[in-house]
Structures are given as C-alpha cells and as structure tokens.
Design a protein around this nucleic acid. Sequence first.
DNA 1: CGATATACCTAAAGGTTCAAGGTAATGACA
DNA 2: TGTCATTACCTTGAACCTTTAGGTATATCG
Lengths: 123, 123
Amino acid sequence: MAKGNTNPDFLNGVPELAVLRVLFDGPQHGYAIVQSISKRTGGTLQFGEGSIYPILHKLEQQGLLMTRREVAGGRERIVYRLSKRGSKQLEESCHRWQNVVQSVQALIEGGDNGLSPVVPAAS
Amino acid sequence: MAKGNTNPDFLNGVPELAVLRVLFDGPQHGYAIVQSISKRTGGTLQFGEGSIYPILHKLEQQGLLMTRREVAGGRERIVYRLSKRGSKQLEESCHRWQNVVQSVQALIEGGDNGLSPVVPAAS
DNA sequence: CGATATACCTAAAGGTTCAAGGTAATGACA
DNA sequence: TGTCATTACCTTGAACCTTTAGGTATATCG
C-alpha cells in the first residue's frame, strides 16, 4: 500500500518556501495555493494538500502568516496573507536556498580545476 | 537533540549526491570523503560522519560503490570507489538536481511576469 | 437527487539527517 | 612509559519533513 516515498529528490523546505513565495504576490486560500504552485512551475512541483495544510498551520503559529475568514459564494474560506515577519522569512529562505544551490553547484562543477590533490604522503 | 539548526534546510539527497561526486574524482575512504566535501564547498556544506557512513553503506549495498581494504601505516582503511552504475547514478542525480533548481528558481523569480495564464483572456 | 469540484483537515508511514557518543590505532611529546 | 591529539570507523536515538490516503462538508450542475 502506501509506498510512502517521503522526501523525494531534493525537495526539503521547498514547499514552505513555495507557500511563502506564492503568498508574497497576494493573499490566497489553501486550495488556491496548492494550485498556484503547480501552475507556476508548469506542473513540475506538485505538492498535495496534505503537504500544504500542515505547513500553513505551522506558519500561522509562527506568526509568519495571518488568516482571515471570508465567505465567497456561501462557502467559508480561510485566506492567508503574508505578515511582515513572513516577508522577512521569505527573503531569508531565498537567500539560504541560493546559498545551497551555489554550494552544490560548486561541488558538482568544481572538478579538477586549481585545487591541489589530497597528497599528504610526505614524511 | 532535535535536529538543530546547524545546517539549513533544502539538503535532502544532497549528502548522497556529494558522496558520489567526490568519489567520481577518485577513490577515497570515508573520513576523507567527509572532509573533501567540506573543503570543496568552502566549509558551507559540512556533513558529519554520522550522515556519511550510513550513506556509504547504503550505496555499497546498492552496488553503486565498490570497496577495497587498504592498509596504510598499519591502519586498515576502507576505500570506496565509484562503480559504473554509480557513475550513472551520479549523472542522473545531477540531472534531477538541476531540474529542481530550475523549478524553484522559476517559482522564486517568475513573479507575475512572462508566463501566460491558463485562461487566455477570451473576449 | 447524484455527481463533481471546491475547500479544509488529519493520521499513519516512511525516509533522512543530525548530534553525540563509542571504539581503536597511530604518532608526538615529555 | 604514559598520555594526548588525531585519524578512522561505526552506531544509536531523536527529530524532522513529506507523502499517501483517507475524511468531512458545501455549492453547482444535470
């Protein structure tokens, strides 16, 4: 049954970053966030609701998101909006992300240029 | 305790990739691998031995690494070398990594410009 | 009414990484 | 000789995150 393949490739912390980023462009409710992410990445990044909602709740608890109840068409929806601290966190997360990308890139590409090989054998 | 906050997030599957990449440049033993990674990334990526050894064992079990016992200075060391399948896996991992990077980048940068919405504004 | 899409939420499961410890052998030093 | 620091290898326990797969409820359309 549930194959439970958890953290697939290199996505870790990415859903959280995605949520923050999407909300940066304007308030949305959970269901819409899920689809915005998919839409924005051309379907490459598809996080299910089961991944997003827990994050939404966590971020709200941390004060990074504000919520507001809205009624649209008789349906109640919870609209999430980025707080000031949320914006800050987004910036920080982006920064860390770039940092990781750079490091990994250096690792991948930084093959045999310049660096001296590990030859301790002297004595 | 807890997973601490030493290393930022976004590192999932990265240690594995790092191990494969480092070994691509030549056989090494575990301890050296740990330090090679740190050295190559200028200390940005520092995975402890507790992270690396389990990966080493897993990769060996999967046939991606070959081992050879060596005796250097009376000490026995286990030297790991990339297998053919390991090389293939490295290439594939790099590819997936680039893929994720692209997607996230699109998400971060692709605010509301450029991409055509799904609804091409009829009438 | 029944089916579908929207909207929200939770539980169980599984894999990953981390910190922190443990064991040994060597070489240096006094 | 004894001890210290370093190298090398290994294991454990906890905590974390994401996913799958459900569960609930309302509105709209045929």
